[in-house]
Design a binder for these strands. Structure first.
Lengths: 211, 211
DNA sequence: TAGATTGTTAATCGATTAACAATC
DNA sequence: TAGATTGTTAATCGATTAACAATC
């Protein structure tokens, strides 16, 4: 049987819904409708309803969805109810920026340990986390249930770090280096690439100015 | 007449092609075929050929595309041949990370001036750029052909910075704050959102582990 | 009850992939 | 010439949007 899996565009929109739900919850609002979402996000309400269906929530005609249950269903859906432990390698500006992103806790990501090879960084604290030498990575990974390895090193070192993560049994890699990583098929790699966004922005600028 | 514009997925793939082209050029290789691209990027060669067609390049059967002309056509296509001047607001970790991204010069982006309101930052140099007080933004923008405003401030201040950019006549905003900005229709806004990628990663982890 | 909103099936739209002719 | 690769038209696939029935 072929499982119908959730479309990628839907998955990408889900954090947007989550954000609004948190706001509603904070304000003590109990119900939210697709119209509410639609006005805030400027998305088609039908699309939103479809997206909701993928999370498994059921709503109530004339009222919408209950805010708190919907929030919890979404957190469950993404697996964000139980934070995943992550090791981060590369404490340059980008690594520091990610560490400073306090929001990650809310998004099921717990960066427990950070590494670098730079003698000037090792031992220092960044956002309250002591930078450890990369040598200790493998050992520490054996003793902790590390689910995600975050790569924020220069491109030239990215593959080597990925290899280390794979050897240490880490099942998923979030890669911020502009490198195509080679990993075994059972390892998940998610690549973030700013140049994608810059390309889209550039084209949109060109199209706007041309008019 | 309705212009057929380039699909967004194509635009997002183009920087990948560009990167390989630069490598080939550096190595003095004159020709590149869709097969070459395909092997490197693990993309369908037919898709690559379609993408090439959008850039306007014509290739040569049995040989492929000339590396340098293709690179230039792509740079032209994205408007990256003449770097766009950008002002960046918010010199925290993320802003610094962007400033340190030396690659941007290659990608048609020239961050000429950076701003903050924090007294401890103003006057300091970050990656060789002196941090100016935000008060000077509007005036300086009048005297320089600023095309892109980059927002790397906390969410709470993002809209206010966007307003300043719009008032200063900046036609495009690259927004790294997790905020939905309200701007006039003639202003282009490109939003970067890490939680999207984290959501995709989380779902892929769930799917992999479930198996 | 009437009306608003959900939920689902069908239609449309757009991107990817397949097929194949053109050409160096 | 034969074969590899481009370029284009057609087929497929998947996501979005439309239509409408169900229901509180």
């Amino acid at each position: 049987m072929r499982t119908i899996h959730t479309p990628l565009p839907t998955i990408r929109r889900i954090p947007l819904y989550l954000k609004i739900l948190e706001e509603y919850e904070k304000n003590g609002v109990e119900w939210i409708s697709t119209t509410d979402f639609s006005e805030r996000l400027r998305l088609n309400p039908i699309q939103i309803r479809k997206d909701m269906a993928f999370t498994g929530i059921t709503g109530q005609p004339k009222k919408g969805y209950r805010v708190t249950p919907l929030k919890n269903i979404i957190l469950d859906f993404l697996g964000w109810n139980s934070p995943a432990e992550a090791f981060l390698v590369g404490c340059g500006a980008l690594g520091s920026a990610l560490l400073g992103f306090s929001g990650f806790q809310k998004y099921g990501l717990n960066i427990t340990t950070v590494f670098d090879t730079d003698r000037h960084l090792v031992g220092k604290k960044i956002h309250g986390k002591e930078v450890l030498h990369l040598d200790r990575f493998h050992d520490l990974a054996q003793h902790m249930p590390v689910k995600i390895g975050i790569i924020t090193v220069p491109e030239a070192n990215a593959q080597q770090i990925a290899d280390l993560m794979v050897d240490s049994g880490i099942p998923a890699i979030w890669n911020f280096a502009p490198a195509k990583l080679t990993v075994p098929p059972h390892v998940v790699v998610q690549r973030e690439d700013l140049t994608e966004g810059l390309a889209v922005l550039s084209i949109r600028i060109k199209e706007t100015i041309a008019r």
